[in-house]
């Protein structure tokens, strides 16, 4: 039984059994199907990470080449259309699952004591997901992307007092340009994903520590 020996040796040092027990052996109240939306979102996020990394293998964040490189992904690389298709629709589905997950938590009053912080991290996750949607929309550098982002950033420019500043900060200058594309790309593949991963970590830690909320009864 060398396998067992190796495992025990590792377990003694890493505490794998304890981790396994806290995550998988925990008991939770009887819940219904609406409670699967959180894990569904996590699953979608994982899928977005995988397909997103794959897309970055061929994508070039430059106004000259972004469109051509996506064209190449779609018709020049084997299965590129499938990977981009999953990434594209995955984004849409993720927004839906995040939103319904939030509505479910709201409906059951699960944001109340002792889960306030879980809720706050959840709201940040919702915002970060929308941020992913907004930054990712520009990357294909097609007509839709270009004009939607022009208008979207202009909206931020109407903030009283500091609108112009925000607009230039978002676009990296006065116009939508290669600088905008580069910073949206950085936000889309580094900043937001990192933020989301950290927030998911806290969110899940709290979910496991405090326990998932029960479906409220008439007296709750």
């Amino acid at each position: 039984m060398t396998n067992k020996k190796v495992f025990n040796w590792l377990d003694e040092r890493l505490g794998l059994t304890a981790i396994y027990k806290t995550i998988f052996e925990r008991k939770i109240p009887k819940v219904n199907w609406w409670f699967t939306l959180g894990s569904a979102t996590l699953f979608l996020f994982a899928l977005q990470v995988v397909t997103g990394i794959m897309l970055s293998v061929y994508y070039v964040p430059s106004p000259d080449k972004a469109y051509d490189s996506i064209e190449f992904i779609m018709s020049g690389v084997a299965f590129g259309w499938l990977i981009r298709g999953i990434h594209h629709w995955g984004a849409t589905l993720m927004v839906i699952t995040v939103f319904i997950h939030m509505l479910r938590v709201f409906f059951y009053g699960a944001y109340k004591y002792p889960r306030e912080i879980t809720w706050v991290t959840g709201v940040f996750l919702l915002l970060a997901t929308l941020g992913m949607g907004f930054t990712g929309y520009l990357l294909p550098w097609n007509q839709k992307a270009y004009w939607a982002t022009t208008v979207g950033t202009s909206i931020a420019g109407t903030v009283p007092g500091i609108g112009d500043f925000i607009l230039r900060a978002l676009r990296g200058g006065d116009d939508l340009s290669g600088v905008t594309l580069a910073r949206f790309f950085a936000a889309h593949i580094w900043i937001f994903p990192l933020l989301i991963i950290i927030l998911i970590g806290v969110h899940l830690y709290l979910v496991i520590r405090i326990g998932i909320s029960a479906v409220p009864g008439k007296n709750d």
Binding site: L47, M54, A78, F79, G80, I83
Partner: peptide, 16 residues
């Protein structure tokens, strides 16, 4: 379903 296309996607330029 994900892994096989991903492998094909990565090695695609070597094949074509």
């Amino acid at each position: 379903v994900v892994g096989i296309p991903v492998a094909g996607y990565l090695v695609s330029p070597a094949v074509k």
